[in-house]
Design a protein around this nucleic acid. Structure first.
Lengths: 143, 143
DNA sequence: ATGGGTGCAAATAATTTGCAGGTAA
DNA sequence: TTACCTGCAAATTATTTGCACCCAT
Protein backbone atom coordinates (compact mmCIF):
# COMPACT_ATOMS: atom_id res chain seq x y z
CA UNK A 1 0.00 0.00 0.00
CA UNK A 2 1.99 3.00 -1.25
CA UNK A 3 -0.54 5.60 -0.24
CA UNK A 4 -2.64 4.75 -3.27
CA UNK A 5 -4.10 7.92 -4.67
CA UNK A 6 -7.66 7.86 -6.00
CA UNK A 7 -8.03 7.54 -9.72
CA UNK A 8 -8.71 10.82 -11.50
CA UNK A 9 -12.08 10.70 -13.13
CA UNK A 10 -14.43 13.15 -14.77
CA UNK A 11 -16.78 13.02 -11.77
CA UNK A 12 -14.12 13.62 -9.22
CA UNK A 13 -12.86 16.62 -11.17
CA UNK A 14 -16.36 18.01 -11.51
CA UNK A 15 -16.93 17.70 -7.80
CA UNK A 16 -13.70 19.45 -6.93
CA UNK A 17 -14.51 22.16 -9.44
CA UNK A 18 -17.98 22.69 -8.03
CA UNK A 19 -16.56 22.94 -4.56
CA UNK A 20 -13.92 25.31 -5.81
CA UNK A 21 -16.49 27.61 -7.38
CA UNK A 22 -18.61 27.59 -4.26
CA UNK A 23 -18.58 30.68 -2.12
CA UNK A 24 -19.26 28.97 1.15
CA UNK A 25 -19.90 25.51 2.45
CA UNK A 26 -21.81 23.05 0.32
CA UNK A 27 -23.44 19.80 1.30
CA UNK A 28 -23.20 16.67 -0.79
CA UNK A 29 -26.78 17.30 -1.85
CA UNK A 30 -25.91 20.85 -2.86
CA UNK A 31 -22.99 19.74 -4.98
CA UNK A 32 -25.12 17.10 -6.59
CA UNK A 33 -27.86 19.59 -7.48
CA UNK A 34 -25.23 22.04 -8.65
CA UNK A 35 -23.69 19.50 -10.96
CA UNK A 36 -27.04 18.48 -12.40
CA UNK A 37 -27.93 22.06 -13.26
CA UNK A 38 -24.55 22.57 -14.88
CA UNK A 39 -25.27 19.71 -17.21
CA UNK A 40 -22.66 17.26 -16.03
CA UNK A 41 -24.37 14.33 -14.38
CA UNK A 42 -22.81 12.69 -11.37
CA UNK A 43 -24.54 10.28 -9.07
CA UNK A 44 -25.37 11.32 -5.54
CA UNK A 45 -23.54 8.29 -4.25
CA UNK A 46 -20.42 9.30 -6.07
CA UNK A 47 -20.61 12.79 -4.68
CA UNK A 48 -20.83 11.43 -1.17
CA UNK A 49 -17.94 9.07 -1.75
CA UNK A 50 -15.71 11.63 -3.41
CA UNK A 51 -16.39 14.26 -0.77
CA UNK A 52 -15.64 11.73 1.90
CA UNK A 53 -12.36 10.67 0.42
CA UNK A 54 -11.35 14.26 -0.25
CA UNK A 55 -12.07 15.12 3.35
CA UNK A 56 -10.12 12.09 4.51
CA UNK A 57 -7.06 13.08 2.57
CA UNK A 58 -7.38 16.56 3.96
CA UNK A 59 -7.91 18.18 0.58
CA UNK A 60 -11.17 19.69 1.72
CA UNK A 61 -12.64 20.59 5.06
CA UNK A 62 -15.80 19.05 6.47
CA UNK A 63 -18.05 20.32 9.21
CA UNK A 64 -21.42 19.33 10.53
CA UNK A 65 -24.07 22.01 10.66
CA UNK A 66 -26.45 22.46 13.55
CA UNK A 67 -29.21 20.78 11.63
CA UNK A 68 -27.12 17.69 11.07
CA UNK A 69 -26.13 18.14 7.48
CA UNK A 70 -22.46 17.69 6.70
CA UNK A 71 -20.99 20.44 4.57
CA UNK A 72 -17.67 20.63 2.80
CA UNK A 73 -15.39 23.33 1.61
CA UNK A 74 -12.22 23.81 -0.34
CA UNK A 75 -10.02 25.62 2.13
CA UNK A 76 -7.38 28.05 1.00
CA UNK A 77 -5.11 27.28 3.89
CA UNK A 78 -3.84 23.83 4.64
CA UNK A 79 -3.13 24.85 8.22
CA UNK A 80 -5.57 24.23 11.01
CA UNK A 81 -8.24 26.90 11.31
CA UNK A 82 -11.90 27.41 12.01
CA UNK A 83 -14.82 29.02 10.24
CA UNK A 84 -17.14 31.92 10.70
CA UNK A 85 -20.27 30.95 8.82
CA UNK A 86 -23.19 33.14 7.79
CA UNK A 87 -26.46 31.58 8.81
CA UNK A 88 -28.28 33.26 5.92
CA UNK A 89 -26.09 32.82 2.86
CA UNK A 90 -23.76 30.14 4.06
CA UNK A 91 -20.73 32.14 3.04
CA UNK A 92 -17.82 31.54 5.34
CA UNK A 93 -14.63 33.14 6.43
CA UNK A 94 -11.61 31.21 7.57
CA UNK A 95 -10.34 32.35 10.90
CA UNK A 96 -7.48 31.35 13.11
CA UNK A 97 -7.68 31.03 16.84
CA UNK A 98 -4.38 30.26 18.48
CA UNK A 99 -5.87 31.11 21.85
CA UNK A 100 -8.62 28.60 21.27
CA UNK A 101 -6.20 25.84 20.40
CA UNK A 102 -4.21 26.69 23.47
CA UNK A 103 -7.31 26.77 25.63
CA UNK A 104 -8.56 23.40 24.37
CA UNK A 105 -5.18 21.85 24.98
CA UNK A 106 -5.03 23.38 28.41
CA UNK A 107 -8.40 22.25 29.77
CA UNK A 108 -7.89 18.79 28.33
CA UNK A 109 -4.51 18.45 29.92
CA UNK A 110 -5.89 19.73 33.20
CA UNK A 111 -8.33 16.85 33.26
CA UNK A 112 -5.84 14.26 32.12
CA UNK A 113 -7.40 13.80 28.71
CA UNK A 114 -5.24 12.68 25.80
CA UNK A 115 -5.59 12.46 22.01
CA UNK A 116 -7.29 15.81 21.98
CA UNK A 117 -9.29 17.12 19.08
CA UNK A 118 -11.79 19.90 19.03
CA UNK A 119 -14.64 21.23 17.04
CA UNK A 120 -15.08 24.99 16.90
CA UNK A 121 -17.44 26.85 14.62
CA UNK A 122 -18.81 30.35 14.87
CA UNK A 123 -22.17 31.16 13.34
CA UNK A 124 -23.67 34.57 12.73
CA UNK A 125 -25.31 36.81 10.19
CA UNK A 126 -22.93 38.48 7.77
CA UNK A 127 -23.17 42.24 7.16
CA UNK A 128 -24.83 41.67 3.78
CA UNK A 129 -27.76 39.96 5.45
CA UNK A 130 -28.07 41.76 8.75
CA UNK A 131 -31.67 42.59 7.82
CA UNK A 132 -32.94 39.15 6.89
CA UNK A 133 -32.14 37.46 10.14
CA UNK A 134 -33.06 33.85 10.50
CA UNK A 135 -36.13 33.95 12.78
CA UNK A 136 -35.83 30.33 13.57
CA UNK A 137 -36.65 28.07 10.68
CA UNK A 138 -38.43 28.52 7.42
CA UNK A 139 -38.00 32.14 6.43
CA UNK A 140 -34.68 31.63 4.74
CA UNK A 141 -35.71 29.95 1.56
CA UNK A 142 -33.77 31.83 -1.05
CA UNK A 143 -32.54 29.32 -3.56
CA UNK B 1 -48.45 33.92 25.87
CA UNK B 2 -47.29 34.06 29.48
CA UNK B 3 -44.23 31.91 29.03
CA UNK B 4 -46.41 28.80 29.30
CA UNK B 5 -44.51 26.12 31.15
CA UNK B 6 -44.88 22.54 29.95
CA UNK B 7 -47.30 20.38 31.86
CA UNK B 8 -45.62 18.06 34.36
CA UNK B 9 -46.29 14.49 33.42
CA UNK B 10 -45.00 11.10 34.43
CA UNK B 11 -43.08 10.77 31.18
CA UNK B 12 -41.43 14.12 31.41
CA UNK B 13 -40.32 13.37 34.97
CA UNK B 14 -38.98 9.97 33.95
CA UNK B 15 -36.99 11.52 31.16
CA UNK B 16 -35.47 14.16 33.38
CA UNK B 17 -34.68 11.51 35.96
CA UNK B 18 -32.99 9.28 33.41
CA UNK B 19 -30.94 12.19 32.21
CA UNK B 20 -30.09 13.09 35.76
CA UNK B 21 -28.85 9.60 36.51
CA UNK B 22 -26.75 9.52 33.37
CA UNK B 23 -23.02 9.93 33.75
CA UNK B 24 -22.40 11.52 30.42
CA UNK B 25 -24.35 12.52 27.37
CA UNK B 26 -27.29 10.44 26.28
CA UNK B 27 -29.11 10.42 22.99
CA UNK B 28 -32.89 10.33 22.71
CA UNK B 29 -32.58 6.71 21.70
CA UNK B 30 -30.44 5.99 24.74
CA UNK B 31 -32.93 7.54 27.11
CA UNK B 32 -35.73 5.64 25.47
CA UNK B 33 -33.92 2.32 25.82
CA UNK B 34 -32.98 3.23 29.36
CA UNK B 35 -36.56 3.91 30.29
CA UNK B 36 -37.81 0.71 28.74
CA UNK B 37 -35.32 -1.38 30.70
CA UNK B 38 -36.28 0.42 33.90
CA UNK B 39 -39.84 -0.65 33.41
CA UNK B 40 -41.44 2.69 32.77
CA UNK B 41 -42.61 2.89 29.20
CA UNK B 42 -42.37 6.16 27.32
CA UNK B 43 -42.73 6.55 23.60
CA UNK B 44 -39.71 7.43 21.52
CA UNK B 45 -41.60 10.36 20.10
CA UNK B 46 -42.26 11.71 23.54
CA UNK B 47 -38.62 11.38 24.47
CA UNK B 48 -37.63 13.39 21.42
CA UNK B 49 -40.21 16.05 22.13
CA UNK B 50 -39.41 16.34 25.82
CA UNK B 51 -35.69 16.49 25.22
CA UNK B 52 -36.23 19.15 22.61
CA UNK B 53 -38.37 21.32 24.83
CA UNK B 54 -36.02 20.89 27.76
CA UNK B 55 -33.13 21.97 25.59
CA UNK B 56 -35.12 24.93 24.33
CA UNK B 57 -35.86 26.15 27.80
CA UNK B 58 -32.22 25.72 28.66
CA UNK B 59 -32.85 23.12 31.32
CA UNK B 60 -30.56 20.69 29.59
CA UNK B 61 -27.73 21.03 27.16
CA UNK B 62 -27.71 19.55 23.68
CA UNK B 63 -24.81 18.84 21.42
CA UNK B 64 -24.39 17.03 18.17
CA UNK B 65 -21.81 14.29 18.00
CA UNK B 66 -19.48 13.78 15.09
CA UNK B 67 -21.57 10.91 13.82
CA UNK B 68 -24.65 13.10 13.69
CA UNK B 69 -26.51 11.87 16.73
CA UNK B 70 -27.79 14.57 19.06
CA UNK B 71 -27.01 13.96 22.70
CA UNK B 72 -28.33 15.71 25.77
CA UNK B 73 -27.15 16.28 29.26
CA UNK B 74 -28.34 17.71 32.51
CA UNK B 75 -25.83 20.45 33.23
CA UNK B 76 -24.96 21.46 36.74
CA UNK B 77 -24.32 25.03 35.78
CA UNK B 78 -26.93 27.20 34.13
CA UNK B 79 -24.24 29.52 32.84
CA UNK B 80 -22.78 29.17 29.40
CA UNK B 81 -20.01 26.61 29.17
CA UNK B 82 -18.57 23.91 26.99
CA UNK B 83 -17.74 20.25 27.34
CA UNK B 84 -14.73 18.04 27.37
CA UNK B 85 -16.00 14.66 26.27
CA UNK B 86 -14.28 11.29 26.51
CA UNK B 87 -14.38 9.49 23.21
CA UNK B 88 -14.33 6.10 24.94
CA UNK B 89 -16.78 6.29 27.80
CA UNK B 90 -18.73 9.37 26.85
CA UNK B 91 -18.26 10.88 30.26
CA UNK B 92 -17.95 14.64 30.10
CA UNK B 93 -16.57 17.49 32.09
CA UNK B 94 -18.01 20.96 32.00
CA UNK B 95 -15.43 23.60 31.26
CA UNK B 96 -15.51 27.32 30.92
CA UNK B 97 -13.67 29.27 28.31
CA UNK B 98 -13.93 33.00 28.69
CA UNK B 99 -11.11 33.46 26.22
CA UNK B 100 -13.00 31.39 23.68
CA UNK B 101 -16.16 33.44 24.05
CA UNK B 102 -14.10 36.57 23.70
CA UNK B 103 -12.31 35.23 20.67
CA UNK B 104 -15.53 34.19 18.94
CA UNK B 105 -17.05 37.57 19.59
CA UNK B 106 -13.93 39.28 18.37
CA UNK B 107 -13.50 37.53 15.02
CA UNK B 108 -17.21 37.83 14.33
CA UNK B 109 -17.21 41.52 15.04
CA UNK B 110 -14.10 41.96 12.93
CA UNK B 111 -15.98 40.58 9.95
CA UNK B 112 -19.16 42.48 10.66
CA UNK B 113 -21.15 39.43 11.64
CA UNK B 114 -24.06 39.79 14.06
CA UNK B 115 -26.27 37.45 16.11
CA UNK B 116 -23.26 35.40 16.98
CA UNK B 117 -23.43 31.92 18.40
CA UNK B 118 -20.75 29.32 18.55
CA UNK B 119 -20.28 25.64 18.93
CA UNK B 120 -17.23 24.47 20.84
CA UNK B 121 -16.57 20.94 21.98
CA UNK B 122 -13.35 19.27 22.98
CA UNK B 123 -12.95 15.54 22.53
CA UNK B 124 -10.29 13.31 23.95
CA UNK B 125 -9.59 10.14 25.88
CA UNK B 126 -10.02 10.44 29.62
CA UNK B 127 -7.28 9.15 31.96
CA UNK B 128 -9.34 6.08 32.81
CA UNK B 129 -9.27 4.94 29.22
CA UNK B 130 -5.92 6.13 27.98
CA UNK B 131 -5.15 2.53 27.00
CA UNK B 132 -8.25 1.65 25.02
CA UNK B 133 -7.95 4.39 22.45
CA UNK B 134 -10.58 4.54 19.76
CA UNK B 135 -8.79 3.26 16.64
CA UNK B 136 -11.40 4.74 14.41
CA UNK B 137 -14.79 3.09 14.63
CA UNK B 138 -16.06 -0.14 16.01
CA UNK B 139 -13.72 -1.12 18.80
CA UNK B 140 -15.60 0.75 21.48
CA UNK B 141 -18.58 -1.46 22.06
CA UNK B 142 -18.78 -1.62 25.82
CA UNK B 143 -22.41 -1.66 26.73
C1' DA C 1 -7.15 -6.81 -19.15
C1' DT C 2 -8.36 -5.40 -14.31
C1' DG C 3 -9.46 -3.38 -10.29
C1' DG C 4 -11.06 0.77 -8.60
C1' DG C 5 -14.80 4.10 -9.69
C1' DT C 6 -19.67 4.86 -10.78
C1' DG C 7 -24.59 4.96 -10.13
C1' DC C 8 -29.18 3.13 -9.46
C1' DA C 9 -32.04 1.34 -6.18
C1' DA C 10 -32.76 -0.42 -1.77
C1' DA C 11 -31.28 -0.31 3.04
C1' DT C 12 -30.17 2.32 7.31
C1' DA C 13 -30.89 5.53 10.92
C1' DA C 14 -32.13 9.44 13.30
C1' DT C 15 -35.75 12.46 13.84
C1' DT C 16 -40.38 14.52 12.66
C1' DT C 17 -45.31 14.63 11.93
C1' DG C 18 -50.41 13.16 11.60
C1' DC C 19 -53.86 11.94 14.32
C1' DA C 20 -56.78 9.61 17.91
C1' DG C 21 -57.22 9.22 22.60
C1' DG C 22 -55.62 10.32 27.61
C1' DT C 23 -54.94 13.61 31.29
C1' DA C 24 -53.20 17.63 33.95
C1' DA C 25 -55.01 21.95 35.26
C1' DT D 1 -64.18 20.36 30.33
C1' DT D 2 -60.34 21.56 27.32
C1' DA D 3 -56.06 22.24 25.53
C1' DC D 4 -51.84 20.12 25.84
C1' DC D 5 -49.44 15.68 26.06
C1' DT D 6 -48.74 11.03 24.51
C1' DG D 7 -47.57 7.41 21.39
C1' DC D 8 -48.12 4.53 17.39
C1' DA D 9 -47.30 4.36 12.73
C1' DA D 10 -46.02 6.50 8.61
C1' DA D 11 -43.24 10.11 6.47
C1' DT D 12 -38.82 12.67 5.91
C1' DT D 13 -34.11 13.34 5.29
C1' DA D 14 -29.27 12.51 5.15
C1' DT D 15 -26.14 9.02 4.17
C1' DT D 16 -24.63 4.16 3.23
C1' DT D 17 -24.42 -0.22 0.86
C1' DG D 18 -25.19 -4.07 -2.72
C1' DC D 19 -24.19 -5.07 -7.09
C1' DA D 20 -23.59 -4.92 -12.09
C1' DC D 21 -21.14 -2.23 -15.32
C1' DC D 22 -17.54 1.08 -17.13
C1' DC D 23 -13.10 3.32 -17.59
C1' DA D 24 -8.38 5.00 -16.09
C1' DT D 25 -4.16 2.84 -15.70
Amino acid sequence: MTTSAPRSTRQRAAIKAALDAAEGFKSAQDIHADLRSTGGSVGLTTVYRALQSLADSGEIDALRKDDGETVYRQCSTPVHHHHLVCRVCGRSVEVEGPEVERWADEVARQHGFTSISHQVEVFGTCPLHAAEQVPDEGTARGD
